[in-house]
Amino acid sequence: MDISPVFFYLFAGLAIAFSVLVVLKKSPVASAFCLVVVFFMFAGIYALLDAHLIAAVQVLVYAGAIMVLFVFVIMLLNADSPSFDLGRSHLGLRVGAVAACVVLLGLFVYAFRASPLQVPPGALTAAQIDAAGGNTRVISRLMFSEYILPFELTSVLLLAGIVGAVAIAKRKLGAPEGTA
């Protein structure tokens, strides 16, 4: 598991650049699309870490489904209308926001410097994972043997989500509670 520095800095740099754009863009829709690029860059970094399944989930669920929900909320709120523009914010508010960001950054740097990163040992060593043919295969083998019941229960959980969403959204507005 050697991380190529060129690709790491490429992905990380683009992720930071587009994160800044998310904040700076005036139009919420443009911000949302910058966030999609950030998610894709994260997927690239996960792939560099040999977490291929996480990378696929990142693209499929975050860049796909979660972003659809974000864009829908933006469209529902009509956030592009002029009334949404709050104008220039209060000076004290700006100073406070910048100060909070600097304090948070300092806290992060201190926390990561003070405590060396210790990865808890997993059930399998890196050599064992390589021998099995990568992380995704290991997850698959465990999922379809030891953890088969949780896997099947996941489908029940998703079923509950589907039924719940439909039951709440398709309620007859005229009918009294409990009959629809």
């Binding site: 499929l60 669920v61 489904a65 529902l76 995704t136 997850i139 083998r141 896997f151 996941t154 959204a169």
Partner: peptide, 29 residues
């Protein structure tokens, strides 16, 4: 503004999207 009814479609897409994730480990082995 979009009609709020599209939101249900989006949520159903999200749920079936999460289902699709489980096909990746299945397909590998």
């Amino acid at each position: 503004r979009f009609s709020v009814r599209f939101y249900l479609v989006a949520i159903l897409f999200l749920l079936f999207d999460v289902e699709a994730v489980f096909f990746f480990p299945f397909a590998v082995t």
